[in-house]
């Protein structure tokens, strides 16, 4: 396939997504399209379903309705004719390997050093040679400004440093899409900046990113698209600067008046 044809396909295309836990519907008919190289920010009150939606994208949560494509691939299922077939865990893992994810609570592996954290997945999942993986890992650590911490255990690092390592760990898999689940919410205020700086650099390098965040400033400055979610639906979306400056919907207005 040629590059021009490839780039016509959006990176993420979510079509009428429904997700429920028992009788509780968390996501009600979510449709989102994120183009290649875009930075999409998801904002909204807690419990609005932002994080759940993010976790549906890499199939950490399975969806109950709708269809979700990442880079043209249907996530978690294979379609033959009208029928959907569940993918095997192995196939799902393969799909996930191309999607990086950064968590609110970092989730670094505490029993491994920073370097071991980063080379774990490339060497085990993609069978990269250890030497090559270490070289890539050191480059990534350089990029997030933590090369000198390669041999430290995550427990020795500050929250901001841990989150930067977590970003490097996700990047080591050379993902085509990065998901950020409130990456700065667990950080002390003075550490938020260093993580946002790394994310800005990543956005400038052309990475497609979906960011669930409460950092309105980041959304305004870096975001290409903004989605405001409440009670499992997307209430409002558009260019971040326009939506933030001039919210149309009453729920958006009341939310923004509280966080700004």
């Amino acid at each position: 396939m040629s590059d021009t044809l490839m780039s016509d396909i959006p990176m993420v295309h979510a079509d009428h997504i429904v997700k429920s836990y028992g009788s509780h519907e968390v996501l009600k008919d979510i449709s989102v399209t994120v183009e290649r190289g875009q930075v999409a920010c998801l904002i909204g009150p807690s419990g609005s379903g932002k994080s759940t939606f993010l976790r549906c994208i890499n199939h950490l949560e399975s969806i109950n309705g709708g269809r979700l494509w990442v880079d043209g691939d249907l996530m978690g299922y294979r379609q033959r004719g009208d029928k959907l077939y569940e993918m095997s865990p192995k196939e799902v893992s393969r799909q996930r390997a191309d999607i990086g994810m950064v968590f609110q609570s970092f989730n670094l592996f505490p029993h491994m050093t920073v370097l071991e954290n980063i080379i774990e997945a490339p060497t085990r999942v993609k069978n990269v040679k250890k030497q090559a993986a270490v070289a890539t890992a050191m480059q990534l650590l350089e990029r997030v400004g933590l090369a000198h911490k390669a041999k430290a255990y995550p427990g020795h690092l500050s929250g901001g440093q841990q989150q930067r390592v977590a970003i490097a760990r996700a990047l080591a898999m050379e993902p085509k899409l990065m998901l950020f689940d409130e990456p700065t919410s667990a950080l002390d205020p003075e550490l938020v900046g260093e993580v946002l700086d790394v994310m800005k650099g990543l956005a400038q390098s052309g990475m497609t990113m979906i960011v669930v965040t409460h950092e309105i400033g980041f959304a305004r400055e870096v975001g290409d698209a903004l989605f405001f979610m409440d009670e499992g639906v997307i209430v409002e979306s558009g260019d971040p600067r326009e939506v933030l400056a001039n919210p149309q919907h009453q729920r958006t207005q009341s939310f923004l008046s509280k966080v700004l």
């Binding site: 994810m101 989730n107 999942v125 760990r169």
Partner: peptide
């Protein structure tokens, strides 16, 4: 921990 590993594509 389990989620982070699975998100990295680990089986």
């Amino acid at each position: 921990q389990d989620e982070a590993a699975r998100a990295l594509g680990m089986s």
